[in-house]
Simulated assay, not measured.
Amino acid sequence: MSTVHQDSPELDRVWEQFCDTLKRAGNQILRSEAPDNLFDRAEGYRYLSRLTRIALEMQVESGDADFPTFMVPSHETAKIGADNPDNFYQVALISGRNEYRVTGSLNDAKNINFSTKRGGYDTNGRLVASGLIEARNMTIESDGSFELILSKEERHGNWLKLDEDTSQLLIRQYLPRRRQQQPAQIRIERIGATEARPKPLNPAIFAEKLLRAGTFVENTSRMFCDWAESYLSRPNTLPAADQKLCQAVGGDPNIFYYHAYWELKDGEALVVKVPRIPKCDYWNFVIQNYWLESLDFRYFDICINKETAVYDENGGVTLVLANENPGAANWLETAGHRRGTMCFRWIGANEHVQPETEVVALQTLKLGN
């Protein structure tokens, strides 16, 4: 990585390197197995632009471990790797050499998952959990407020362990009725800070952060394009994912994942049937585009979960993925897409019931209703 001193031309070269990295990331959209129609390719380039926004916000604007702030790495218009629309995500870049205080108030969050991570998509492409605590296992005040200490040495009360190489704090807030619910308001501060604010812009540090942002875009796009490619051999099925791989790149250890590729012709629908729902904290099913971004959940119903599903008489659930409403209770809209990826999650399930899938004629479903 370049180091910038008092040499403006060297900083110019850093900018060129950043731009070259983004250009190289574009090769992921042009991979031979990736869809080459105009619609999916446009989404692919939009995906890269979104990753760039995320990377700059995370690495450049919020990337000071001595003065950490939370940013939202996946949201309505910027998404990473099979994001969950029922989650409100927050990330703060931190360091194991410091101690931190996290405070907040639960509001409508059903549960909040706090996890410390090692690594990063900007470095080794991994994001391994080093500590985990959930709000339901914390002491919460009667008004919903809480305090959580992050440190190497154990503290009394709510505490989350830091390791020497801890690099970030990732928060998942579960909001199963996200359109009506208010996420928790959460803040972070470094304990023992001797200065109230960071120093003015340091060109050398800025250059390092900019290069990390570019690497983040390239590594992230490559990794999840690799995932999409790995699903192509079994279209319209929902096999269990490689759980160790999911955990190695930031997945929640409480989640059991299924990832897959779907593709439908005109007049077809994909029926996903779960014969029974075991005891669990939560489950959901999400439709994504080829680039593993959830479809636009602001305006389309592309996600169904434990609370929003209509159940079968026997306690199971039948989900229907189609571009046109077949009159089914649990219809998920493909929002103009012919192909994409999908994800089913169990959280805290006492068993993992395999979802069954079948491609059927859309007209058959309509006649059945």
Results as ranks from 00 to 15, higher is better:
319 L>W: 00
159 W>S: 02
2 S>T: 13
30 L>R: 13
321 L>K: 02
272 V>G: 07
32 S>M: 02
45 Y>E: 04
49 S>E: 14
343 C>K: 01
305 N>C: 07
357 T>Y: 01
77 T>N: 15
218 E>R: 06
229 E>M: 07
349 A>C: 05
103 T>F: 04
325 N>D: 15
340 G>C: 04
205 I>S: 13
56 L>I: 13
336 G>M: 02
312 D>S: 09
257 Y>D: 07
261 Y>K: 05
102 V>N: 07
105 S>M: 13
314 N>F: 00
99 E>R: 11
235 P>S: 11
325 N>R: 07
338 R>K: 08
338 R>C: 05
52 T>P: 03
208 E>K: 14
204 A>F: 03
261 Y>F: 14
115 S>G: 12
5 H>W: 06
111 N>A: 07
149 I>L: 03
107 N>K: 12
241 A>W: 11
258 Y>G: 12
350 N>T: 10
102 V>H: 04
273 K>D: 13
321 L>E: 01
289 N>L: 00
243 Q>F: 00
217 V>L: 00
58 M>K: 14
13 R>T: 01
321 L>D: 01
22 L>I: 15
256 F>E: 06
368 G>P: 00
234 R>V: 14
355 P>Y: 04
288 Q>A: 04
206 F>M: 11
352 H>E: 13
160 L>G: 07
343 C>Y: 00
238 L>G: 05
192 G>F: 03
14 V>M: 05
167 S>F: 04
215 T>W: 00
51 L>A: 09
121 Y>K: 00
165 D>A: 06
75 H>F: 09
49 S>C: 15
287 I>F: 01
94 I>F: 02
363 Q>R: 08
287 I>D: 06
352 H>T: 11
146 F>K: 00
98 N>Y: 03
210 L>A: 09
198 P>E: 10
60 V>A: 12
203 P>N: 09
84 N>E: 14
367 L>T: 07
352 H>Q: 11
87 N>K: 09
282 Y>E: 09
264 L>A: 03
12 D>E: 15
329 A>R: 06
357 T>F: 01
335 A>E: 04
143 D>T: 11
329 A>K: 11
39 F>S: 00
85 P>G: 08
348 G>C: 06
77 T>K: 14
48 L>D: 04
190 R>E: 04
46 R>S: 10
194 T>S: 15
289 N>F: 00
194 T>Y: 02
175 L>G: 03
24 R>V: 07
101 R>F: 07
253 P>K: 06
308 T>R: 11
341 T>V: 12
369 N>L: 09
35 P>Y: 06
69 T>A: 13
45 Y>V: 11
184 A>S: 15
123 T>L: 15
84 N>P: 12
